[in-house]
């Protein structure tokens, strides 16, 4: 029972950064812009947030600063691919290189310095530690509770609102959407900035909420896992919740099984998060048709009359 509660309580700390980043990427890609820059944007978010807190600011200020830094680099990316029609794959990889390079250099004086971090609900509310649910809630923070709600809200907005329809149209058939009065460039730019905001939040969460420290390369490929989750979730924010939950809970289970000396093969356990996520999302994808990939993903849209 203790084992179960401890595990359930820690899962959101694994899930939240992946979920935030992949929801951001999904909106960008639904608008037709392939976005591979998550690893770099998360690094920028993590470092900026950490050094803001180390400078004596509130954790929330740190998180805001981290998100803003990733939005700033997204603006560069957005201008490059939407306005100047640069290759989206290359520009995305450039964002990764810029993010890792800038954080490595600027963050250098701040590495390994621990700080207070974002308070947990247990620090804010009087929760009964004897109550299992109380213990699980006490280990959460505002962002880890908000992340799944945000993901479902993004799904609702995307699928059920006029604005969401316009965004999807920009990614499926930009020419038709253009004729129907959608401003393709503005829509895509907004979606790219939203992806930056979410990736920045995800990175800031890693440093300010989870580990209370900045270390170079601390995103440790979580950005790439978010990119993969987008595909496995078939570009649906709701399915991204399932994917991130599966991956996060398996990832959180592996060290906990080792800590009780469970007689299971470690190397197979290491595969578990990947294998399980792949398997379940494969099963659920059997019900739907196609991959869900936006038809004009990665394509540069040129309006005829602009030639």
């Amino acid at each position: 029972m203790d084992f179960l509660i401890g595990w359930l309580a820690i899962i959101p700390s694994y899930t939240t950064p992946l979920l935030l980043a992949s929801v951001g990427l999904i909106l960008s890609e639904r608008a037709g812009v392939l976005n591979l820059g998550a690893e770099g944007m998360m690094a920028l978010g993590a470092m900026t947030a950490a050094i803001t807190v180390l400078a004596g600011h509130d954790p929330w200020m740190g998180i805001a600063a981290g998100a803003a830094a990733a939005v700033a680099v997204s603006l560069l990316f957005g201008l490059a691919v939407v306005v100047f029609r640069a290759d989206q794959t290359l520009a995305g990889l450039a964002v990764v290189a810029i993010g890792l390079g800038v954080t490595g250099t600027v963050g250098r004086p701040y590495v390994q310095q621990t700080f207070g971090g974002l308070p947990k609900l247990g620090d804010l509310l009087a929760l009964d530690p004897a109550n299992p649910l109380g213990r699980i809630i006490a280990a959460q923070d505002v962002i880890s509770l908000a992340a799944p709600i945000l993901a479902l809200a993004a799904w609702w907005w995307l699928m059920k609102t006029q604005a969401g329809l316009r965004l999807r149209a920009a990614g499926e058939n930009p020419a038709a959407a253009d004729v129907a009065g959608v401003d393709i460039q503005l829509t895509q730019l907004a979606a790219v900035l939203f992806a930056g905001l979410m990736c920045g939040l995800a990175g800031a969460y890693l440093s300010v909420a989870t580990s209370h420290v900045w270390v170079e390369n601390m995103v440790a490929a979580r950005g790439w896992i978010a990119v993969a989750l987008v595909i496995l979730a078939k570009w649906s924010p709701a399915r991204a919740v399932i994917g991130a939950m599966l991956f996060g809970s398996a990832d959180a289970l592996v060290p906990r099984l080792q800590a009780i000396g469970a007689d299971v093969p470690v190397y197979l356990m290491m595969m578990l998060p990947y294998a399980l996520t792949l398997f379940v999302l494969f099963l659920t994808s059997l019900s739907g048709r196609g991959s869900g990939e936006p038809a004009s993903l990665g394509a540069v849209y040129l309006r005829q009359d602009k030639h």
């Binding site: 820690i10 989870t210 580990s211 209370h212 060290p255 906990r256 800590a259 009780i260 290491m270």
Partner: peptide, 25 residues
């Protein structure tokens, strides 16, 4: 003595999480 491998040489986030997993035991 509880021993846990993080399965990574470089994952500061996970090192904190693994430390918590050990403390929970």
């Amino acid at each position: 003595t509880i021993a846990v491998f993080t399965n990574s040489w470089w994952d500061p986030v996970k090192e904190g999480q693994v430390s918590e997993a050990i403390l929970d035991q």
